[in-house]
Every structure is written in structure tokens, then in C-alpha cells.
């Protein structure tokens, strides 16, 4: 018969058990292990859908736009115009969905936060690990989308190689506050509402499909105030090599500020929800 205790000790030893040195990595490695099981399921949402939008709207609508003389950017096809916009929007989509919904799920539906919450990890460690994983998800889906558009010859500048990383920052600016929203929501409808009333309108009115300057002033002001427009500007400016240093600093600074504020909010929310 085997025993549970270490062979020499009548009482199980605890000397080698402690708080892990980099606790967030324990949560990250769990998420990665799970992802190896489930990555196929995520392909549609984070890769196929953006490409369908890109091909459907970019090629179909692009033909109309290009022939009507309504060029959003002089000398640039609509397809080329749309590509960086969709890159930023894809980052937002993955960032918000992956955090808002999985955070809600991990707390309430498939309570996978329960195990780390009972371990030496702090709620902040759990958040950090999950955030790192989402960063990975955002970056990989953006790199995949970027690779397709670059292969189609739509990257016009060496700076374009930085666009997926600008998109990552855009995604994180959504991920951080959506983590907070996800664990604070008590009903699934609340999380769905966040997508319906925040993400969808942003998708349409943040310069992804058409320049913001074409919209009425209230919409424009709202677009400037929210992160996606800044992400779109960054990605588009990098793709065409037209981004000025001050503009870049402004957009990056804004996105960093939103990410930081969202992260602080999420730390607070995790502390309250994982350990009451």
C-alpha cells in the first residue's frame, strides 16, 4: 500500500510547498494548456470572421467606393484602407470577448477561478496570468490577420511590421476593463450587453470602415474619446508610414492610460470577487 505522506515523515511535509516564485505564470500555463485543447474553437471568431469581413466588405464594397471617387485616402484602394482598421478592430474584439466573457465564465459558469483562488495565488496573480494569456491571444490573432493582408501586398511601409503590436496595445486597452466587467457582472445578459452596446457601435464608428470625419460631430467626439479610434489611427498610420511622432505618442499614451486605468479597476474587482 502506498502512503500519501513523504516516506520518512508520519505527518506530510510542507517544506517544499510555498507561494510560486512567479505566480501569474502558473495561471498563464493553465490557460495555455486549456488552449491546446480548445484553440480550434477560437479560430472562427478571432481569425476567420475578420478575414470574411475583410474579403466581403473590402473587395465587394471596395469596388463601389474606388469607382465613385470617394477615396478615403488619396491613392489608396478601399481594401488597403480597410486592412489596418480591421486589424485594430480584431484586436478589440478578441481583447474584449476573451476577457469579458471568459472572466464571467471562470467565476460563475465553469468556475475555473475557484482552484487558483484557494491556492497561494492572490486574485491579482490570477488576473495577471489571464491577462498575459489574452495578450498572447490578441497578438497571435493580429499577427495572423496581418500576415494575410501583408501577403496581399497591403503593407506599404516597413513601419507596418509594428502594426500588430499597436493592435495588441489596442486589444489590451479593452481587455483590462472587460476583465473587471466580466467578474463584476452577476448575469450573463450584462456581459452580452457590454458587447452589444459598447463593442458593436465602436466597431462601426471608430474609423474602421470609413473616416470618422464623415460622421456627425457627436459621434466623432465619442469616437475620439474611446480607444478603438486611437488604435485604428496607429495601425493605419504605421501601415502607410504616414504616422507622425507626436500623433504616435498621443495615441500610444492614450491607449496606455486606458489600459492602466482598466487594469487598476480589474485588480480591485478581482480582489473583491475571488476573495470576498
Amino acid at each position: 500500500m502506498t502512503t500519501l505522506a513523504a516516506p520518512a515523515a508520519p505527518v506530510p511535509a510542507t517544506a517544499d510547498t510555498s507561494v510560486p516564485p512567479r505566480p501569474a505564470l502558473a495561471e498563464l500555463s493553465y490557460r495555455m494548456l486549456l488552449y491546446r485543447r480548445t484553440w480550434r474553437r477560437t479560430l472562427i471568431m478571432s481569425f476567420v470572421n475578420p478575414l470574411l469581413f475583410f474579403a466581403g466588405i473590402g473587395i465587394g464594397l471596395g469596388r463601389l467606393v474606388d469607382h465613385s471617387g470617394g477615396d478615403p485616402l488619396p491613392g489608396v484602394s478601399y481594401l488597403a484602407y480597410l486592412a489596418p482598421g480591421l486589424l485594430a478592430a480584431t484586436a478589440m474584439q478578441t481583447g474584449a470577448l476573451e476577457s469579458g466573457f471568459t472572466a464571467y465564465q471562470s467565476l460563475r459558469m465553469r468556475p475555473t477561478y475557484r482552484a487558483p483562488a484557494a491556492s497561494p495565488l492572490s486574485p491579482a496573480d490570477v488576473l495577471d496570468g489571464h491577462l498575459l494569456f489574452n495578450g498572447f491571444r490578441i497578438l497571435t490573432s493580429c499577427l495572423a490577420f496581418f500576415a494575410v493582408t501583408a501577403a496581399a501586398g497591403l503593407a506599404r511601409s516597413p513601419w507596418a511590421l509594428l502594426a500588430p503590436f499597436a493592435a495588441l496595445l489596442t486589444g489590451l486597452a479593452f481587455a483590462a476593463p472587460f476583465f473587471a466587467g466580466g467578474v463584476l457582472a452577476t448575469r450573463q445578459g450584462t456581459v452580452q450587453g457590454m458587447f452589444r452596446f459598447i463593442i458593436m457601435p465602436l466597431y462601426l464608428f471608430s474609423g474602421t470602415y470609413a473616416p470618422v470625419s464623415r460622421f456627425p460631430e457627436p459621434v466623432r467626439i465619442l469616437a475620439y474619446a474611446l480607444p478603438l479610434w486611437h488604435g485604428v489611427q496607429l495601425c493605419r498610420g504605421l501601415t502607410f508610414g504616414t504616422l507622425s511622432a507626436p500623433a504616435a505618442a498621443e495615441h500610444v499614451g492614450y491607449l496606455l492610460a486606458v489600459t492602466a486605468a482598466g487594469y487598476a479597476f480589474a485588480r480591485h474587482a478581482y480582489a473583491a470577487r475571488l476573495h470576498d
Partner: peptide
């Protein structure tokens, strides 16, 4: 969604093992 052994692996890592 994970196997029995994977559940141990994940949980053990939370304890720094």
C-alpha cells in the same frame, strides 16, 4: 475539459511545484 493528470499538473503549479 482537462484530463485527470492535467488537473493535478495545473493545481500543483499553483503551489509552485
Amino acid at each position: 475539459e482537462l484530463t485527470v493528470a492535467e488537473n493535478f499538473l495545473v493545481y500543483g503549479r499553483y503551489f509552485g511545484l
